[in-house]
Design a protein around this nucleic acid. Structure first.
Lengths: 212, 212
DNA sequence: TGTACATCAGTGAACGCGCGTTCACTGATGTAC
DNA sequence: TGTACATCAGTGAACGCGCGTTCACTGATGTAC
């Protein structure tokens, strides 16, 4: 499912720029108001373009969403790989690795709440969108498992691989829920506290003897 | 936010029945296809009624959704209170209380997946819908905390009340996420396993010395 | 118990709005010779 | 280097579909006397 499938590639630099501007504008608007709340006319206007140009590139509005989604997905995978690079976490206790990682995740989910919400809503109805999200989760779980390998002997959970998968799923679910429902009351809980409790929960679950 | 605010009360038994049939049909259709996917004409047809009758009761489609939501919310609160009644769990270890409770929750979230999904999507954009969900979560957390009181001395988490709130939020988030994304791969994980791991996670997090 | 009238309940065709999509047209860029 | 032509890029008014909502009308139920 490469971008080339939804987008008719531009032949001139000029239209490549137009395409870029359209994607940019679309991402902004979708993040602000969701897909339903965003009209093609608005996208074109914010991009300083026209409806016709839009349809010269995208077969329909749906294809646009998929393009924006794919961009986002690739960014996410890249970020995850970078953050979870084992190099970064050598000689650090699991807790000291997890807490900052959770803080970072909380930050990202807050910054990109609009897009995440839109995609989540979409994933609830479209299988292929859901599949992307799941793939991302599995990539993260695999990376985390790598990190855990070094500290293997500390883990008392009978099936560490499954445990990591499960914990990853729980954490991502919670972050997703937090992005989805931002009632005032919820957002009161400071991110530091959430990060601490997530850390406590994960280490306790994996069965790591803590020293705090 | 009582039903009476959205629904014009019927004066004759006949129209009370019609209203009931409309609510029933609406709930079915919304569970099957979501709100957007459900037209007023369809609701009327499935209820064996007419569009005019619909608008004799509801000011608009939105009010219908709120009525269905409120019904669901009240059922949920009632069920929660019943299931978490301390009477039921006297003399049982926390693990033996949690596991069946989680199994039950998984069951409910599966059975009512359609409605839950619709309301979740809605809650992401409408504050008042989100508020209802949060209220439900707090009710559950409070009840669970009651259950924990008996086993207080076993808990090693420094702030049990907050811990219960946090754990409840995590569990409900995970269940919500599971309802939302039913990719094939996800639904493969058997509910028994999820219930076990949730139990393990919660007891470990609260800091309860397990005996298994 | 019967008649006249008021209100409630129900019907579905017609209306209208929002928004995705099309299309006839203009202008810009590249290519052939 | 210049001219003719083809293709690419861009424009925005007009179209049309789906669906929520209205409304003029018919029938049923209750009430007054």
């Amino acid at each position: 499912l490469g971008v080339l499938e939804w987008v008719k590639p531009p032949r001139q630099a000029r239209s490549a720029q137009t395409l870029e501007r359209i994607l940019e504008a679309a991402e902004e608007l979708i993040a602000e108001r969701g897909l339903e709340g965003t009209t093609v006319v608005e996208i074109a206007r914010r991009a300083g373009s026209s409806v016709g140009s839009f349809y010269a590139r995208f077969p329909d509005k749906e294809a646009l969403l998929l393009s924006v989604l794919e961009r986002f997905y690739e960014q996410s995978v890249a970020t995850a790989k970078q953050v979870l690079d084992p190099e970064r976490w050598q000689g650090v206790t699991l807790q000291d690795a997890l807490r900052p990682a959770f803080l970072f995740l909380l930050h990202v989910f807050r910054e990109r709440r609009g897009l995440i919400t839109t995609f989540t809503l979409r994933a609830a109805r479209e299988g292929d969108v859901a599949a992307l999200g799941e793939r991302l989760g599995q990539i993260v779980a695999a990376q985390v498992y790598e990190l855990l390998q070094v500290r293997r002997e500390q883990v008392s959970h009978p099936d560490p691989r499954e445990a990591v998968r499960f914990a990853t799923w729980m954490v991502l679910s919670a972050l997703e829920a937090r992005a989805l429902h931002t009632t005032e009351a919820q957002s009161q809980i400071p991110e530091e506290l959430i990060a601490s409790e997530l850390t406590r929960m994960c280490t306790a679950y994996l069965g790591i003897e803590t020293e705090g």
